[in-house]
Design a protein around this nucleic acid. Structure first.
Lengths: 201, 201
DNA sequence: GCGGTTGTTGACCGCTCGGTCAAGTGCCCC
DNA sequence: GGGGCACTTGACCGAGCGGTCAACAACCGC
């Protein structure tokens, strides 16, 4: 669907994506009908199909946009930082901040992961994020900053912690992103066992 | 739906739940029709509605059963163990083992979390699991075994790690539960930073 | 102010969905 | 062996779905 859009057209398209995101997140993808979206916006059904080939395509478009945007935020957060541990930390903080701002979209990615029709679209983005993280972890291990554990385990575990804390504390309870990020970083870096560390070097 | 069931009836009900679980996990809850379930089993549609009031009730029943079963497994794993750290570890291992055996059901709980109609049903079970874990964590802190961090952060973070590793390594790649559990436990207890610990006491 | 493109309308279509039910079958207990 | 309950059948229903389209409105560049 590559239509030439005027300013007005681009605005309408945005409006459709934003409202659909909200409805999908609130009510679920399948239970939300195209009719519900267009009547909620007070427009005819044809408008929807002027901008999107299908309901499914709209959903994929929302996913795509979300992934690019998050990745952009993460990249921006770690430019000019050399220390891999610090890069990991900043990546987590950026993710937290972004997730706090895009609650609905985040919910949709969770749903997408559970439906085989949408999962592949997510995978590509997630794989990239994981690969990035693995690079930092590997770097950290080589520099003797991180324990020598299979980097992918670490990367996935960090993703899991971040995601869970986002869901529970940011979205369900509306906690402060910085606060939650502090907790995530502390947990990830230090674990839960007591005992002072004797830093290497 | 509390019907008096004969042996035959109980078997049929099981069959319906098992097959539905498989289809829901494979194809998604909404895209799987009741017609698909009954024809897949080679029975008439009335059979379905003899055992379940609705498609939704069947789904909730699957969820309910899963939660009770997982909780049973967890409880059984930690009986007669006093050390809270060890209890946490065994709980994680039990979850891993259970999740490896119930791949499909696990997928469904993930979906249920994304739909507001089903989320409440999950919450009850999840809250109990969290509360249990918090108890162990608090115990561990009091005994000076664990760092003094807000217990709920810790509990949720552990849940996140476990869930993510289950999804990626157990379900997507078919890794060994014990191996994945080892990684999870190591990560959770020690974090990722290098440096020997000076154990308390 | 005209021509063409972009944007919009909403009745309509075919289809599938979840769910019902009157009729029948098999099985168990007395 | 028969009465009654557990179980099964599948045609059928109304509703709502995603998607189409002919007709029309608004806007823009010339």
């Amino acid at each position: 669907m590559n239509r030439r859009l005027t300013q007005r057209g681009r605005e309408r398209r945005r409006q459709l994506m934003d409202y659909a995101t909200e409805r999908f997140a609130e009510n679920g993808y399948h239970p939300t009908s195209v009719a519900e979206i267009v009547t909620g916006l007070g427009v005819g059904k044809g408008v929807f199909y002027w901008y999107f080939q299908s309901k499914e395509e709209l959903f994929l478009e929302i996913l795509r946009e979300a992934q690019t945007d998050l990745r952009r935020a993460q990249k921006q957060a770690i430019t000019d930082v050399d220390d891999p541990v610090r890069r990991i930390e900043l990546g987590i903080r950026a993710t937290m901040a972004w997730s706090a701002e895009h609650r609905d979209v985040y919910t949709l990615t969770q749903f997408a992961a559970t439906e085989s029709r949408f999962a592949p679209a997510l995978r590509k983005g997630a794989d990239i994020a994981i690969r990035d993280t693995i690079t930092h972890v590997r770097d950290g291990i080589e520099r003797g900053l991180l324990r020598d554990i299979e980097p992918e385990y670490i990367a996935q575990a960090m993703l899991g912690v971040t995601g869970q804390l986002v869901r529970t504390f940011l979205h369900e309870r509306g906690a402060q992103p910085t606060e939650v990020a502090d907790a995530a970083v502390a947990f990830i870096l230090e674990g839960i066992l007591v005992g002072d560390r004797t830093p290497a070097v």
